[in-house]
Amino acid sequence: MIEIRELKKSFNGKVVLDGVNLDIKRGEISVIIGRSGEGKSVLIKHIIGLLKPDSGRILLDGKDITTMSEKEFREVLKRFGMLFQGAALFDSMTVEENVGFALREHTDLPDSTIRKIVKEKLKRVGLEGVESMMPADLSGGMKKRVGLARAIAMDPEIVLFDEPTTGLDPIMSDSIADLMLDTQRALKTTYVVITHDINLTYKIADMVAMLHQGRIIEKGTVEEMKANPNPILRQFLEGRAEGPIKVF
């Protein structure tokens, strides 16, 4: 569904992505793992068009999205949803307005229908009766859930997750993982997740890819990755300070 080919990106001479190649299959949960600062967020921002590559291509159903006009790409964006690291809820709007935002902007649905959809999406992420609350009144876990409800409000084909469990306690992280699994299985959506949370990766991933020094160094199923002897991957999965990856 998404093919990333020789994607390169540098910032002020510092190479962040150095020829990334990756295939993301339709209807699967693809998890991209890697240390902080390895360019995972940069990669996901390229997929959704927030950044333009120095070179390389990103093909969505065979069409290169990096060379599309703004108008064309805006139509492509309607196929995407995204959950940001800090949820990025609009803090001047209520939960209901946040979740229904894209529906109000892009459809002519009557307000009663939008409210019904919002309620249903919030229920799907395990939240009820929070419609009139402001984002500032929500806990971290609730914000992520509302962010997920907003991301799936337009029934997108692809949802991107930027560190969905960062800043959450282990129990809340696990419940977010369950939620991601539930929604993905129910909606048959393609999920692309970037994270350094290994527990989350093991729980939800159909395909795992490791980004290291600007390249995808290994990819495979969870079982394949667990059995992979690559010392860099092993060090990361086992969370050891000693190994080929130098911490300082």
């Binding site: 959704i48 805006r74 964006l77 940001f84 990025a88 894209a102 902007e105 337009m154």
Partner: peptide, 14 residues
């Protein structure tokens, strides 16, 4: 800085 502008963009809103 809280990525709300990026969120607008990803929702196909200029």
């Amino acid at each position: 800085v809280t990525e709300q502008i990026d969120a607008l963009y990803t929702m196909a809103i200029n």
